[in-house]
Each structure stands twice: as structure tokens, then as C-alpha cells.
Simulated scan of single mutants.
Amino acid sequence: MTADPPLVLDIDGTLTRPEGWGLDPRVFDPVRNWEAPVVIATGKAFPYPVALCHFVGIPELVVAENGGVVYTGDDVYFTADREAARAVTEEYRAAGYALGWGEEDTVNRWRETEIAVNVDQPVGPLKEIAARHGLEVIDTGYAYHVKDVDPNKGDGVETIADHVDIDLEAAVAVGDSINDVSTFEIVGRSFAVANADEAAKSAADDVLEGIHADGTLSVLERVRGSSVP
């Protein structure tokens, strides 16, 4: 039997329920039983994808914070410095705006390299302030990520591939947002779920009919047991 291809999976918008909030438990068994490496590549703070891997029961191969943090299972790599993002936060708040997550702000509490702002907050002044600090703002549909311009998910996936010997030409990636474009560019086959933004749809090899986990599950069924996606 032909081996399963390596997978690169986003979380929000890709492994979530069709209504768009919360992980869809239907993805757990197929991912846990996948016979090739599975890389979780997300904009979420570092602990979240690590915990997902832990609870699903797969090796912790993680790209977090849009490439700002990479975990190969043995070593953690930080590719950006959060200080500039913190400075943007202070200036944004001083201008009368909030990050939009409440006082405890669990969205940013454990971030190492970037800051995420709720999409309900004004993005215009955020972009202006970020630019003054040499940073960019990425709209993933779930948050505005204030980040260094250099790190991205694709670079992080390549770092993991080098360490655990993943053949990226044989790999399959599934995502939904502009921050998945760099991942789509380095794998053999890429899929955008139907709820993806236009940047992801344009970059993907295929745009799926299903949204969120429905689309991802259709890909897993389609490519399972195939080394050539």
C-alpha cells in the first residue's frame, strides 16, 4: 500500500466546525491515524498547536505565530522579536484603541513573537503604527496579526522538513487564509477550503467545495494512501 503523504494543516478556518468556531472533533481520528508526518502551521500562539498535537496524539511538529515560532519536536526556534510588536501595542492603546480580547487577553498572553488584535478593532491606525515600527499587519480573518515582515509559515515548515526529513514535494497543505500562501508555495499539492480568502484561493492548486473541516476531511480522504497528491 502506498504511504500517506505528509500533511501541513492550518487550524482556524481549516480544522474548525462548519459554523466557524471550535475544533471539529471529526478531524482527530484521521489526523491521529495518518501514517506520515503532520505539521500544524497556524497563526495561534505557540502553546495552542502544541496542545492540539498533544491531545490528538501526534508528534509535536509546529509552526506557530505565522512562522515566528517553530518547534521541530526537539528544538524551538524563534524567528522574530516581540519587542517591536509590544511597542505597537503601547502606541495603539495610547491612541485610544484596544486589542479587543478583554482584560486577561488569553489570545496574546503566551505569544512569543507577535501581537494579535481583534478584527472588530480599527485596522487603519494599527497598520500606520505598525509600519512606523517596521512591522506588517496580516488579516487572517480571525485576527489582525502584527508581525515581523520576514517570518512566515512556509519558512517554518521548511525548517521542520529539514530536521525530520519530510519530502515537501510529496506533501499536501490545507489552509484558508493569506498566511497559508507561503505554505502552499513549498508543497507538492495545496488545497484551499471553500471559506478561504481570495489570496489563499488564488495560490492553492485546488479550491474545495466544502468549508472548514468539511473541506479538510474531503482532502484527507482524497489523498490518503497516495504518495503523489
Rank of each mutant, 00 (worst) to 15 (best):
residue 67 G to S: 06
residue 32 R to N: 04
residue 122 P to Q: 05
residue 136 E to L: 12
residue 89 T to N: 03
residue 118 N to Y: 06
residue 104 E to T: 15
residue 147 K to N: 04
residue 124 G to R: 15
residue 111 R to P: 06
residue 52 L to Q: 04
residue 123 V to N: 00
residue 20 G to W: 07
residue 72 T to V: 04
residue 50 V to D: 00
residue 30 P to Y: 11
residue 151 P to N: 02
residue 127 K to P: 05
residue 108 N to F: 10
residue 27 V to H: 07
residue 65 E to P: 02
residue 79 T to F: 13
residue 136 E to K: 13
residue 26 R to S: 12
residue 100 G to I: 11
residue 85 A to K: 06
residue 103 E to V: 14
residue 139 D to W: 09
residue 115 I to T: 14
residue 117 V to R: 01
residue 66 N to Y: 02
residue 151 P to D: 02
residue 95 A to C: 11
residue 58 I to Y: 04
residue 85 A to M: 03
residue 80 A to C: 06
residue 110 W to T: 10
residue 119 V to C: 14
residue 47 P to Y: 11
residue 19 E to T: 09
residue 11 I to A: 04
residue 113 T to W: 04
residue 7 L to T: 08
residue 60 E to I: 12
residue 32 R to A: 14
residue 22 G to R: 04
residue 49 P to T: 11
residue 39 V to P: 00
residue 119 V to D: 09
residue 71 Y to V: 05
residue 56 V to Q: 01
residue 75 D to C: 00
residue 33 N to C: 07
residue 141 G to P: 08
residue 30 P to H: 10
residue 68 G to L: 08
residue 27 V to E: 07
residue 118 N to H: 15
residue 61 L to H: 04
residue 132 R to H: 14
residue 138 I to M: 12
residue 152 N to V: 08
residue 79 T to W: 11
residue 80 A to K: 03
residue 74 D to M: 02
residue 120 D to T: 14
residue 26 R to T: 09
residue 83 E to Y: 01
residue 106 T to F: 15
residue 78 F to L: 15
residue 51 A to I: 14
residue 95 A to H: 12
residue 35 E to N: 13
residue 65 E to M: 03
residue 66 N to M: 05
residue 48 Y to N: 08
residue 30 P to D: 09
residue 44 K to W: 05
residue 151 P to A: 01
residue 75 D to G: 00
residue 93 R to C: 12
residue 11 I to W: 01
residue 38 V to G: 05
residue 133 H to D: 11
residue 26 R to C: 10
